[in-house]
Design a protein around this nucleic acid. Structure first.
Lengths: 197, 197
DNA sequence: GTCTATAAAAGGATAGAC
DNA sequence: GTCTATCCTTTTATAGAC
């Protein structure tokens, strides 16, 4: 066993834990997903799990960060416009644990002083910037008019996407990406101009 | 003390508990709002509280049901169209505990077998029906075109409203009602027709 | 209607051995 | 890197007195 081998094993175990945590969350919800249960499913005891993640909050935030990194790499490219956003949504519908963790944890974390609140604030700003960029790239390509209030549209698309996730958790037959695509087309089809500003 | 007097006192205490529960949730979030803390704030012990609500879930669902009843009576009238929905949203922004409880608890309750899942399913169907009715009443008054896919628009408005609540919890300076009003006007202003159907 | 007392469980986290 | 053992806290809920 070389030192590199050990590191590689540690990294693999970490990745395994992140994946298994999503399965557990999908089945029992964030609240009932105990560290013990997650540990058991990767063949560890609960203290064994804590070797990889100092706190429970760290574990959940790491799961979400891993998602962000993958989404950014896999779905967003500078010039594809709004389609990247829709691709992420479509992909989410294949990972119920991720949707559940995001919806539950983002709600819980809004409370003052929650250890994950900063993560969600930063993530929101990040997604917002990505969507704004997407819309502006559509404007540059003249596939969308310049009359729209871009930040407003970005916040609205994000709100609709988040709200649809709760509806989808109650009824997974609804097509989140199709509905958001329709909203997007609706905005694009109009000469919709801001009310203020 | 007549029998009626005792009932009246019990009902008043129940109402007090519902109100105080919202304060506690606003401060500490649903997860950390223990029965003990709520009980203490109404001058009861935790078993004293359980006299009024058999389980914690009962208490939270009762809080939400009381809100539904009041909203329905206060804000919805058969012929006012979509404005009732916007009035409810504007009122929500004055009751942070309610927004927090709804967002957190509706997420948690989507899990299979959760005691509050049925409530949220029924509530969603109910709100959906109300919004559909509102839109149709606008169509009847010819303040909205007949080309729109009404159920789709209803689900979208609800999703946007729910998603905005999370954004509002992170930043209470955003005006939820104004944003939804703007979406509504956007839909109204277009000859937006369904993509499918 | 409210309390005291207590059950009974589960939770997250840590110390220290191996 | 993982385990055993254990701590300490907190939770909801119940039994039974007043």
């Amino acid at each position: 066993m070389t030192r590199r081998g050990q590191y590689a094993k540690g990294a693999a175990k970490r990745a395994e834990i992140l994946a298994v945590a999503l399965d557990v969350v999908a089945e029992m919800g964030t609240r009932k997903s105990s560290n013990r249960e997650i540990a058991a499913r990767v063949g560890l005891t609960q203290p064994g799990l804590m070797h990889y993640f100092r706190t429970r909050e760290d574990l959940f935030v790491e799961v979400l960060r891993a998602r962000d990194a993958r989404d950014h790499e896999q779905f967003y490219s500078p010039d594809q416009g709004f389609q990247g956003f829709l691709d992420v949504i479509a992909h989410n519908a294949t990972v119920p644990g991720l949707v559940r963790l995001y919806v539950e944890y983002s709600a819980e974390a809004t409370i003052e002083g929650h250890p994950a609140r900063a993560y969600f604030e930063e993530r929101f700003a990040w997604v917002r910037a990505l969507v704004i960029e997407s819309v502006e790239s559509e404007q540059a390509a003249e596939t969308m008019g310049t009359g729209v209030d871009v930040p407003y549209v970005a916040d609205l698309m994000i709100a609709a996407a988040d709200g649809l996730q709760v509806q989808w958790l109650l009824d997974p037959s609804i097509d989140m990406a199709a509905r958001l695509s329709r909203l997007w087309e609706g905005i694009r089809a109009t000469s919709w101009t801001p009310i203020e500003a």
